[in-house]
C-alpha cells in the first residue's frame, strides 16, 4: 500500500514537471536579449560589431533559427537523456557547471538548517511554556524581527560586526568541508546564521503555536497528573507531537535552502547554485538559467514528496488516499 502510494505520488509529479519545463523555457525566451550576442559577449547596444554573415552562421550553429516548439522538443529530449545543453558564455555542459556548484549550496543549506533548528526549537518551547511572560514576548519579538528583516541587510550588518570591527570571521569566500572543515565553518558561519535566522523565525512561531495546542491536550494533563517531571512532559510528550506539524515547515524551508539563496550567496561570494543563477540572469545565459531553475523546481517537488512520506511515517494515522 505504501509503495502504491509512492508510485501514485511520483506519477502525479510528471504533469507538474512538464508544466515547470514549459514555463522555464518560455520565461527565459520572453526576457529581452539575444543569445548570439551573449555568446560573443556583445552588448545589445553594440550590435553593429557583428556582421550579418557571422550572426547567421552562429544562430544556425546554436539552433536558434528553428521554430520555438522544435527548440522545446529538442531541449526536453536532451534533458531526458541528462543533457541540459551548453552554457552560452562558457560553452561547457550546463549539467557539469551546476553540479560543480551544487555541493557548496547543499553544505550551506544543511549548516543553515542546523542553525535554524537549534534556534527555533528551544525558543519556541520556552515561548510556549512561559506564555505571556517576558521570555515569550522576547521570543515572539525575535520571530517578528527575523521575518521582517531583509536577508541582505542582516548579512551586511554581520559582516560589519564580525569581519570589519572584530575581525573574527572572513567576509567572503568558501572552502569545501571535505577538504578543510575548520575553514568551511569559518566561511559558512555568517551566511548560515543569516539563512538560519530566516528559517528559525517562522519555525519558532509554528512550534510555539503547536506546543500551546498540545499543552492543552488531555494526555498532557494526564502526564502532569501522573507526576512526571516537567522536562519529560514537555520534551517527550508535547514537543514530540508538536514536531510532526513542524516537519511541513522544515521540509518546505529545506527545499528553499537547497535552491540556494541568491542574495546570501551573492553577498558572501558563496560559489553555489543561487549565485550561478544570478550570474546566468545577468549575462542572459539561457541554458544556465533554465538548468538552475529546473533544478530548483525539481528539488522542491522532490522534497515535497519526501515531506509527505515522512509525515506518514511520523503519524501513522494519516490516510494515504
Amino acid at each position: 500500500m505504501f509503495v502504491r502510494y509512492l508510485i501514485q505520488r511520483i506519477w502525479q509529479l510528471i504533469p507538474v514537471l512538464i508544466l515547470v519545463s514549459v514555463a522555464v523555457f518560455l520565461i527565459v525566451r520572453v526576457i529581452p536579449g539575444d543569445p548570439v550576442l551573449v555568446m560573443l559577449g556583445i552588448d545589445p547596444e553594440e550590435r553593429s560589431r557583428i556582421s550579418e554573415e557571422q550572426y547567421q552562421a552562429l544562430q544556425q550553429q546554436l539552433g536558434f533559427d528553428r521554430p520555438i516548439y522544435v527548440q522545446y522538443v529538442h531541449w526536453v529530449s536532451k534533458i531526458v537523456q541528462g543533457d541540459l545543453g551548453l552554457s552560452l558564455r562558457s560553452r561547457r555542459p550546463v549539467f557539469e557547471i551546476i553540479f560543480e556548484r551544487y555541493p557548496a549550496t547543499i553544505y550551506l543549506a544543511l549548516t543553515a538548517l542546523l542553525v535554524g533548528i537549534a534556534i527555533a526549537i528551544p525558543t519556541g518551547v520556552i515561548a510556549a511554556t512561559r506564555q505571556n511572560t517576558g521570555a515569550d514576548y522576547a521570543a515572539m519579538g525575535f520571530a517578528l524581527w527575523g521575518i521582517a528583516m531583509p536577508n541582505f541587510w542582516l548579512a551586511l550588518m554581520l559582516i560589519v560586526l564580525f569581519s570589519l570591527k572584530l575581525g573574527w570571521l572572513p567576509s567572503i569566500g568558501y572552502a569545501s568541508p571535505l577538504e578543510n572543515p575548520l575553514r568551511f565553518l569559518q566561511h559558512a558561519c555568517l551566511p548560515a546564521i543569516v539563512m538560519g535566522t530566516d528559517l528559525a523565525a517562522p519555525l519558532t512561531r509554528y512550534i510555539r503555536a503547536e506546543m500551546l495546542e498540545q499543552l492543552k491536550q488531555d494526555y498532557v494533563r494526564t502526564a502532569w497528573a501522573k507526576g512526571l517531571p516537567s522536562r519529560m512532559v514537555i520534551i517527550k510528550h508535547a514537543l514530540k507531537n508538536s514536531l510532526i506539524a513542524a516537519v511541513t515547515v522544515v521540509g518546505l524551508q529545506t527545499a528553499r535552502l537547497l535552491g540556494g539563496s541568491t542574495i546570501v550567496e551573492t553577498v558572501f561570494s558563496w560559489p553555489g547554485v543561487g549565485r550561478l543563477l544570478i550570474e546566468g540572469i545577468y549575462s542572459r545565459d539561457y541554458p544556465i538559467v533554465q538548468g538552475a531553475v529546473l533544478l530548483i523546481a525539481v528539488t522542491y517537488v522532490f522534497i515535497n514528496l519526501c515531506v509527505d512520506v515522512v509525515y506518514k511515517w511520523l503519524d501513522p494515522r494519516i490516510k494515504l488516499e
Partner: peptide
C-alpha cells in the same frame, strides 16, 4: 569574484 560593489569594499576593509 565579488559581484556586489559594497561587499567588495567591505572585503577590502576586512583584509580579505
Amino acid at each position: 569574484e565579488i559581484g556586489d560593489a559594497t561587499v567588495r569594499f567591505t572585503a577590502l576593509q576586512a583584509g580579505d
